[in-house]
Nucleic acid binder design. Structure first.
Lengths: 346, 346
DNA sequence: CTGTTAGCGCATTCAG
DNA sequence: CTGAATGCGCTAACAG
């Protein structure tokens, strides 16, 4: 005989979460008082506050942020897009970003782009529906549609892992061109002349390689055999890379790889073939040095601090969110730099 | 001109995202028609549908899922909690889970617990406010408050990486006790007698070790020197672990480590000290075999397929979400198993 | 097929 | 300090 009204009873029964209204009726106050007791306790009389807290306890009430948009303007949600989380270099970026964001009271929505701008567009599409307060992207290569949607959205954005002539918003990264140049210079100085590349089919990797090719081109080296491989990067893939290179008749004295994992594969394959490293063949990687060191004690590499990128990116976002008019974040460009670290393999 | 305009002009101006209502007024239809044109296009007359699509294009409208709770029941959000994303074993679990969830049209909210139940409780608290449709947890050790909140929430849950007498809901994992036993049995069979452990301060690691100690205890071995270290696991930490062990006067013939990374550190330290592996000292790790192989070609290890855990967990969640009454997921228990892989280091 | 009405859970006006 | 009324963006339920 109970009326079939919207009243779902006082206590949140199994299955249904109690709402702020449920708490209010149990506490015998109005909904708004509950809201205030929870969000701005200091303006609520202690006795009422206590009543509310007891009701919250009793019901196991957990406020819902889902409908918050109805009133407040922020979702306290930040989206982070990375190509993959299986690559330590990105997982460190992600980890650092999450740490900073969580500390500041934001939740993190994660999206995997698998190194593809098209995939990024799909993921972005889903993510924009959540109205995140900020977005951290990997790279600066996005589809035209993505760029339009992002800029129309008015959401603060940080692009990472790259430099760009004209970023969408903020930028925390480094110059892949500079890396290509620096690697070329170092290797040339060491006397290497027969370059080859084993790389992933990835825009950033390509940028580094093109830059390297340009640089050594100016020293008269024009032929650079290059094997391009599909993600994900694995050691086996690196081995296959060197194999392909040699099968094609290349005889490099140095192989530059787009990641430490590939480089490690090349080192293994070289060892298998009895190729003396670095005497007959030098190997160069790219990634996080500590990771490289784990892979192979002698691996030479371009060292990038992924964690710092994630941290800086998150901090930039937070600064903007704190004060959207802050001019210091308006055209933020952070170059976190890199180091070319030569070890036993070169 | 009979429409009663709801305030803001037609086009969403810079800064404000256009709403479904804006689209409706531009298209000259009612809001619900826009909603239907977008969600169930087949029940809308083609001409109207077209009008709506054009208006959507023109305004760059992106539907908001933030307030969806107001009408629909699902958030299409799944939360995944892992201790860290910097450990390849968990990042693979995460990667696989995200892949499955994204494919099914769910977004992933990520939480980092840093191996701590207290931290997990905090993160969980924030996440429950988002009313996710499902939650994937790592481990079965949660604070009492966490357990209560989770079970009251009525949200489908998958606990992973572990077995438990009485899981909260669904479970995809393996038995750490079985691993401890299996490792003990294998090492005893190989003739090792002086056991030692280098482990992270982590409940699951402790379970494995306790089980191992129990097993070898039954063979009369009662003394097992053990170094417990704070996360995160690093190679350097593993080296320090062996150092500490030896400084304390232990002289093990086998060191069992709670992760491959620590084991790798132990191997390095042993090499540095000129200790013959595996003649004078054997080393045992735990993690993903392919990862272990990258770390050290000879590393023995308990091989766990992290990706499979993530995949299975996500699939279980989806099955439940598809049909909440499906009995097959009601008491789902999946044991993904493990392999003890002995290689050169034992 | 389409529009009207109502309401989700919460917080922000503005009155008391 | 407290509360009633109102609105957020969206969609079920029920009309037409």
């Amino acid at each position: 005989m109970t009326s079939k009204r919207s009243g779902r009873g006082q206590a949140g029964r199994a299955g249904k979460q109690p709402t702020l209204i449920d708490v209010a009726s149990v506490a015998g106050v109005s909904p708004i008082t509950v809201s205030r007791a929870l969000n701005t306790p200091e303006i609520v009389r202690p006795e009422l506050r206590e009543k509310v807290f007891r009701a919250v306890q009793k019901l196991g009430y957990v406020p819902s942020m889902l409908t918050q948009r109805g009133s407040e303007e922020r979702s306290r949600l930040v989206a982070v897009l990375v190509p993959t989380v299986a690559n330590s270099i990105f997982s460190e970026t992600l980890q650092a970003a999450i740490d900073v964001l969580t500390e500041a009271g934001y939740e993190t929505l994660i999206g995997l782009t698998n190194y593809s701008a098209e995939r990024e567009e799909q993921v972005l599409d889903a993510i924009l529906r959540r109205r995140p307060d900020g977005i951290i992207l990997t790279g600066t290569l996005h589809t035209a549609a993505s760029k339009i949607r992002l800029s129309r959205s008015g959401i603060p954005i940080v692009e990472t892992w790259d430099s760009a002539r004209k970023p969408l918003d903020m930028l925390v990264g480094f110059s892949h061109e500079a890396i290509g140049q620096a690697v070329a210079a170092q290797l040339l100085a060491k006397g290497y002349r027969r370059f080859a590349a084993v790389m992933l089919d990835d825009a950033r990797a390509r940028q580094r390689k093109d830059s390297l090719v340009r640089e050594i081109g100016e020293h008269g080296i024009t032929e650079v055999p290059c094997v391009v491989l599909p993600p994900p990067a694995t050691v086996a893939l690196g081995r296959a890379g060197l194999t392909t290179l040699l099968e094609r008749g290349a005889s490099p004295d140095v192989v530059v790889c787009s990641s430490d994992t590939l480089a490690h594969g090349v080192l293994e394959e070289a060892a298998e073939r009895g190729i003396n490293v670095p005497r007959a063949l030098a190997v160069m990687g790219f990634g996080d040095l500590s990771h490289a060191a784990h892979l192979h004690p002698a691996l030479s590499s371009v060292n990038i601090n992924g964690a710092r990128i994630g941290q800086r990116a998150a901090e930039a976002l937070l600064a903007r969110l704190d004060d959207p008019d802050d001019l210091s974040t308006a055209k933020l460009r952070v170059d976190v730099g890199f180091d070319v670290v030569l070890r036993g393999s070169t």
